[in-house]
């Protein structure tokens, strides 16, 4: 019944992941709000505590490790708000996850668009 297809390099946000990632995603969702973004910037550790992030999630946040955030249940739509707070584009985030530079990642995107 439950989807358990293994697609390499793909972490699906399913029930267990959504449960696990809830505090992390709720924190990142709060970044819609400018006051929340400022509060985070002033004291990241206090902000993690406010949303009761797990140790795994705090560690991923500290290291800005997007893959680790996904593994800790992060949903990309909320993580994108965190990336925005850091001033990163989706291509920067793509580079971080694939181990490419942003320029390499952009070139990779262009290549796939070619006929």
């Amino acid at each position: 019944m439950t989807q358990t297809v293994d697609i390499p390099g793909t972490i699906m946000l399913d029930g267990p992941m959504a449960t696990k990632g809830y505090p992390l995603n709720k924190m990142c969702y709060s970044f819609n709000n400018a006051a929340a973004r400022n509060e985070f910037k002033q004291d990241e550790e206090a902000y993690y505590e406010k949303f009761k992030l797990t140790e795994e999630q705090r560690d991923a946040m500290r290291k800005r490790d997007v893959i680790a955030m996904l593994e800790a249940g992060g949903s990309i739509y909320y993580l994108a708000k965190f990336a925005g707070l850091l001033g990163l584009s989706v291509q920067d985030v793509g580079g971080l996850q694939t181990g490419m530079t942003t320029e390499e990642f952009k070139a990779f995107l262009v290549k796939q668009g070619e006929i």
Binding site: Q3, D14, T19, Y22
Partner: peptide
């Protein structure tokens, strides 16, 4: 009861009931 809740939610959506899922 999170585990059974999620199991039901998965099963329902597959069954054609497009639930709103609330954490």
């Amino acid at each position: 009861e999170s585990d059974l809740s999620w199991h039901i939610a998965n099963s329902l959506v597959e069954d054609g009931f497009d639930m709103t899922i609330c954490q």
